[in-house]
Nucleic acid binder design. Structure first.
Lengths: 169, 169
DNA sequence: AAGATTACCTTGGTCGGCCAAGGAATGGGT
DNA sequence: ACCCATTCCTTGGCCGACCAAGGTAATCTT
């Protein structure tokens, strides 16, 4: 048994006083990411990459810019992540014949093979997270998180529009 | 106006199907972190550092191990973060006379000066996040997040105990 | 048709965060 | 007293994620 484990967070600092919900949010988000990361490691992925792969499983070959927008990530983040995923053989990149500056991305067989594993991991973690909650509570939580997400999204976007014709898939 | 802004996330991938709540959680957590990071930048801090500082404001000089445990972070993370905070003058580190392998950490005046700014930022973001929610909804959200946190914490800790005598402060 | 603007991606740098491994100092068992 | 286990911290490596800046290609303007 390894003695001291990280991730304890028991008595959080007085951030609780200034932003109880925000603090709980940050805390839960981190715990969720860690728990997910643990499952992903057995699959050979790092946390964050699974969302990228999910996107690639759903859509076929996709433009990198599409990934950037749908995942809401910085372009440079996507570039580097794809470079690593390419090197680990999960992803293939090639030029877009229709636009020579664009890059088309798709999952390799090796990447496809992870699909059920990743989806199971998500389902597993989902049920674990909601353990002890009634279905009604789950729905309520989902609803409230949606509202908060909307509030935060507005501030983050700060006027833009998020091009409507983007849901290509 | 910078044209393309990241962070859009509009139609999330089919992760929604496998773990709607988990996905919303990850999403909101990230948005919250980004929004907080924006406020912190004006104060000269990076996201994550503010929790460390809050802990230091509450307690006086603290052992590094205390920070590790209370924030639930990896020891190496804390070491590096403190090195940077020290270099930016927000924090001072010195030897613990009672235990020569330990390190005592405390906030400098410069670090203290950020306190109200950070707390205001948290309050501000909190009210923004909860905009449009009734007080009852806020409480409900808090309660549900607490439950989920508990579920996730159990898995993350995986048997340990989190030494009860740790709430020194 | 030439020039300015945009869109698409890279590179380089910095941070938070994790893991693995290692060096000191303390403490417990015999 | 001695040695072994534990605790406390550091270093190095790797990723996700951000920003800033730059290079190439398409598009819009005039």
């Amino acid at each position: 048994m390894s003695g001291t484990d990280p991730v304890c967070t028991e008595p959080p600092p007085a951030a609780t006083r200034c932003g109880p919900v925000g603090h709980a949010l940050a805390r839960v988000g981190r715990l969720h990411r860690i728990a997910m990361g643990r499952r992903l490691r057995e699959l050979g992925l790092y946390p964050g990459q699974e969302l990228m792969m999910m996107r690639l499983w759903d859509c076929g070959p996709v433009r990198q810019s599409e990934l950037i927008q749908s995942l809401g990530l910085d372009p440079s983040t996507v570039t580097k992540m794809l470079q690593r995923l390419e090197q680990s053989g999960h992803v293939r990149r090639g030029p877009d014949p229709a636009d020579r500056r664009a890059v088309l991305v798709e999952a390799t067989e090796r990447g496809q093979a992870l699909r059920t594993g990743v989806e199971d991991a998500w389902k597993d973690l989902e049920s674990l997270s909601l353990g002890g909650l009634s279905a009604a509570d789950g729905a309520e939580l989902s609803r409230l998180l949606g509202l908060v997400a909307e509030n935060l999204r507005e501030e983050t976007e700060e006027a833009d529009g998020c091009a409507p014709g983007a849901t290509v898939c």
